[in-house]
Amino acid sequence: MSLFKRLFTALKSGSVTSDEWEQIRSNLISSDLGVKLVDQLIDQAKSIKPDDAKEAITRQVSSWLSQKNRNLIMAPDRVTTILVVGVNGTGKTTSVAKLANKLKGEGNSVLLAAADTFRAAATEQLQTWAERIGIKVVIGAVNSDPASVAFSAISNAKQDKFNYLIIDTAGRLHTKQDLMDELGKVIRVIEKHSPVDEILLVVDATTGQNGITQARTFIAAVAVTGFIVTKLDGSAKGGVALAIEKESGLPIKFVGSGEAIGDLAPFEPGSYIESLFN
């Protein structure tokens, strides 16, 4: 029986032993929800009337989720620019490819920009994806300024009237101030020519509580508009995503769940909450 069901059954019977509460608490902590959030949830659950426990708890968790629109923004009469950022190894390049494939499948013209000029062969990795999808990618020289790649990409996208421009950036640890500043420069350069509509932060579902710090720092540095949570197909529950949504008020827009190009789906709050308790 799932923990969620167990919790409700226990609540309904009106007698939850302290051992059972401890068990529930342990399970939630193992989902990377974070001790503080778990204790908050348990405290509230304890005071809930047994009859409407399920609804009340779901409502509680849902109220922590962002109320903002989870759809991707689309600019009506100009190119929509999406910047994808995150720490190293979260799956930015793969997510960029998946997103491009999805948008192309919906009938849009999509241009990619390989602004990760730092990691060895990151450009080639994106090029390979672009070939598979059948779209163009703007590239720069190794170790060149990512802002210059972004500049030629936006010029290209405007000139050829692309619907979407998706820019892949180098992984950067949020603790490296100079790299965070570099991101600001990329954005400034683009915005001289066209607005940046979405800045998506890629969060690895296997990340622990450090994910909160990551999100906090990226949001402070650039105007993040939403998240992509990756690697949800593993054994990690990605509970930190709930903590991030609660703190930032920004929405998870997509979840990645595999290595195939089609493994990207819109975020479904209902099934996510269910999985946290499983």
């Binding site: 990377d32 296997t206 593993g234 509970g239």
Partner: peptide, 15 residues
């Protein structure tokens, strides 16, 4: 293993 990994570390390491 990534030092930032969360509670899943144990499950993954065990796997």
């Amino acid at each position: 293993v990534d030092a930032m990994i969360g509670q899943d570390a144990v499950k993954t390491a065990q796997a």
